[in-house]
């Protein structure tokens, strides 16, 4: 039977079945979670038919509203700041040959990808707690600052890839055609980098939106974001409300990823 088929060199024993199993294992829990968010019953253990009840409850919950708003504010700021500094850094570290200290810059920029989050969280807790005492300020600034920092590498990578793929002859040609440095950046470099910058901003936004640990350690009282709110809910009796919030966040993530997918695909 199998003999009749041509010999496929890419086939390895048991690989395809394991891969399919892995995909099933990856998606089954997520699908379960989403499914239970439409539960009309009063607890996670009791199925009460399909309903949007818990979405309504979550939407009317003031704590959820505020946490969601806070998450969005922080994620927007973090995405804007991280993308701005990452774009500059990508232009500074790419296409100009090796220079002294380049490795240092790479290490610092990518550091959040390497150091376990719990360690950074502890470090920021110690640092910000003394700053809070010294300045008396305890607003969202700390969270925005921390989020901006760990979002930098996520914004940097796609922008850097875009800069690397961009021909330096574009800027040379612009300079040849009487463009000043600023006009070259404004009319040539920036428009050509835009897909990379959008992609970077979206990844930074998702990364900020998803963060749990650093937020948990840095936030002052009453500064819950959606993820830390959900983590806090765990100590109480679980209701499908958490499923509803999770599903909403998941939908937002998938939506951003789909846009990201098309933005990066389009101009390749």
């Amino acid at each position: 039977m199998a003999r009749a088929r041509s010999f496929d060199v890419t086939t390895l024993p048991g690989f395809a079945i394991t891969a399919i199993l892995a995909f099933v294992l990856l998606y089954a829990p997520i699908i379960t979670l989403v499914f239970y968010s439409f539960n009309g019953g009063n607890s996670v253990n009791q199925w009460g038919g399909l309903s949007l009840k818990w979405y309504a409850i979550a939407a009317q919950n003031e704590a959820v509203q505020q946490a969601a708003l806070r998450s969005l504010i922080i994620a927007l700021w973090a995405a804007v700041i991280a993308t701005a500094v990452a774009t500059m850094a990508a232009l500074g570290t790419t296409r100009r040959g090796k220079f002294k200290g380049q490795t240092f810059i790479y290490i610092v920029i990518n550091q959040p990808l390497m150091v376990p989050e719990i360690v950074t969280a502890v470090a920021l807790l110690i640092f910000f707690s003394s700053v809070k005492i010294a300045t008396g300020y305890s607003g969202l600034g700390y969270l925005i600052l921390a989020h901006s920092a760990f979002c930098v590498p996520f914004a940097y990578l796609p922008i850097k890839a875009r800069v690397e793929g961009m021909d330096t002859s574009m800027e040379t040609a612009a300079a040849d055609l009487y463009a000043t440095s600023w006009n070259t950046f404004r009319f040539i470099t920036l428009p050509l980098l835009l897909p990379g910058i959008i992609a970077g901003a979206m990844l930074a936004f998702i990364t900020s939106l998803d963060n749990v640990i650093i937020t948990e350690f840095v936030k002052s009282a009453g500064q819950d974001t959606l993820p830390t709110y959900m983590l806090g809910q765990l100590r109480r009796a679980m209701t499908p409300e958490v499923n509803a919030i999770s599903t909403a966040l998941l939908a937002l993530t998938v939506l951003i990823l789909i846009i990201f997918y098309f933005v990066t695909k389009k101009r390749d």
Partner: peptide, 26 residues
């Protein structure tokens, strides 16, 4: 190098302030 450092400076300052620097305190 000077241009590279200048353009990377905002990112470096942000990360040294709110990611790498505090590790030293730990």
């Amino acid at each position: 190098g000077a241009n590279g450092w200048l353009l990377s400076a905002p990112a470096l300052i942000l990360l040294l302030l709110a990611a790498s620097g505090p590790l030293v305190i730990v």
